[in-house]
Simulated scan of single mutants.
Amino acid sequence: MSSPDQTGQRHSWFEDVQALIIGTLFVSLGLVMFRQVGLMTGGTVGLAFLAHYATNLPFGPLLFVINLPFYALAWRRLGKRFTLKTLAAVTLLSSLSELTPQWLGFAKLEPLFAALAGGLLIGTGFIILFRHRASLGGLNTVVLWLQERFGWRAGLVQLALDSLILLASWPWMDGQRLALSVLAAGAMNAALAVNHKPGRYMAY
């Protein structure tokens, strides 16, 4: 008898909706921790951080705008359903990233803990979104397409791209925060590499 992971069952709309909410909430919590201690991350979220640090423009709208060019790739390569769910996830994260700091604050937050816990929260949020055929747009879309097209491990490809973005953040980071940001990227992508392997989760 086939296991649930081999049946390729379609998620219901309710399952997709709750996944978008929970996944983006996990990511927004991780990002709040990063912003509290001044850490960076990769992907289009990292690009939005770079633009935010360089221009002082609000992070949420920057994230939404930076993702716009990638929707064409998502539509052509991964389909309408994926693209619409990704658009919903990005819009939700853009809103949560501005609202969550108004709802949640930290009296004390150690940077090392923020790097590890925040990275794992973000990685877990990505896994939830990926397993419901959604992403946070941009480079996540490219990474997911490469995994589905060539079988490349999403976590490893994401780690390579994230490393390049972290290096680009050097002008706005000191050595300690950059090292902790690298550690955070490692935690995030370790969660992806271990828990999101090609063919392991077949629902869609």
Rank of each mutant, 00 (worst) to 15 (best):
S2C: 05
S3E: 15
P4Q: 07
P4T: 02
T7N: 13
R10W: 09
H11D: 13
H11G: 06
F14T: 15
F14L: 14
D16E: 15
D16M: 12
Q18P: 03
T24Q: 13
T24R: 05
S28Q: 12
S28M: 11
L29W: 10
G30V: 07
L31M: 15
L31N: 09
L31F: 02
V32L: 15
M33E: 15
V37S: 06
V37L: 10
L39T: 00
T44P: 03
L47E: 06
L50F: 09
A51S: 13
A54R: 12
N56I: 03
L57A: 12
P58W: 11
F59R: 09
G60A: 06
P61F: 05
N67S: 09
P69I: 04
F70R: 00
Y71I: 02
Y71A: 01
W75C: 05
G79T: 06
G79E: 11
R81A: 13
F82R: 05
L84W: 08
T86A: 01
A88P: 06
T91I: 05
T91K: 03
L92F: 03
L92I: 12
L92M: 11
L92Y: 05
L93W: 01
S94Y: 08
S95M: 13
S97E: 14
E98A: 02
L99P: 07
Q102E: 15
Q102M: 14
W103D: 13
L104P: 10
L104G: 04
F106H: 12
F106K: 08
A107Q: 14
L109H: 13
L109N: 03
A114W: 00
A115R: 02
A115T: 04
L116M: 11
I122M: 15
I122Y: 06
T124W: 10
T124G: 14
G125Q: 09
I127W: 03
R131L: 09
R131V: 04
S135L: 01
G137L: 11
G137P: 05
N140V: 01
L144H: 02
L146F: 05
Q147A: 07
G151A: 03
G151I: 03
S163T: 15
I165H: 02
L166R: 00
L166S: 00
L167Y: 00
S169G: 07
W170N: 03
P171Q: 05
W172K: 00
M173F: 01
D174G: 01
D174W: 01
G175D: 12
G175Q: 10
Q176D: 02
R177K: 08
R177F: 00
L178A: 01
A179S: 10
L180C: 02
L180G: 00
L183S: 08
A184H: 01
A185L: 12
A187T: 04
M188I: 00
N189V: 06
A193I: 06
V194Q: 14
Y201G: 04
M202S: 11
M202C: 07
